[in-house]
Amino acid sequence: MTEEIIIAGFGGQGVLSLGKILCYSAIMQNQEVSWMPSYGPEMRGGTANVTVILSDERISSPVLKSFDTAIILNQQSMDKFVNEIKPGGTLLYDPNGITRHPERKDINIYKIQGAALATEMGNPQTFNMIIMGGFLKVKPIVLLENVKKGLEKSLPERHHKLIPLNIEAIQKGIENVETVLAL
């Protein structure tokens, strides 16, 4: 199994840390991982994206042009990456702020109201873990228990008290994915 994922959105949405937690979770189930961020003059409000690869085998290129799954969290990223999803692949996106919705018919498309749900939870910082939940629902390649372990590994100990809240956010994500198009 090799899963090639792009996660893209605004800086500050937790795009990079979502990727990092996903990687740690896969390490917990003995998989190989790579995490390649876009780096540069990005900052809060600018765009941020990370290519994450999870695999049972040694990973070749950490830099890719096409992806099995795209997790898209703003319009710029939608415009940039929607056509880079492999036919038969999967798009998971948050419709918040999206005006040009995906029109492809050859990929699975799922929506998750991440921003709205985070507001509902009263904590905007849970946003990326709600998205994580959405991903786990549509691509159950990482076990939830390994995500819990991954959170423990990737968060500094002083933040471990926040793990239950993060798990709650993941649950919320799992329960709130809407199918737009399933092949």
């Binding site: 990092k20 990687c23 991982v33 790579s34 995490w35 390649m36």
Partner: peptide, 10 residues
């Protein structure tokens, strides 16, 4: 280079 320097792996 910037790829290997900036990327995370196990």
């Amino acid at each position: 280079d910037g790829v290997i320097g900036q990327m995370m792996e196990k």
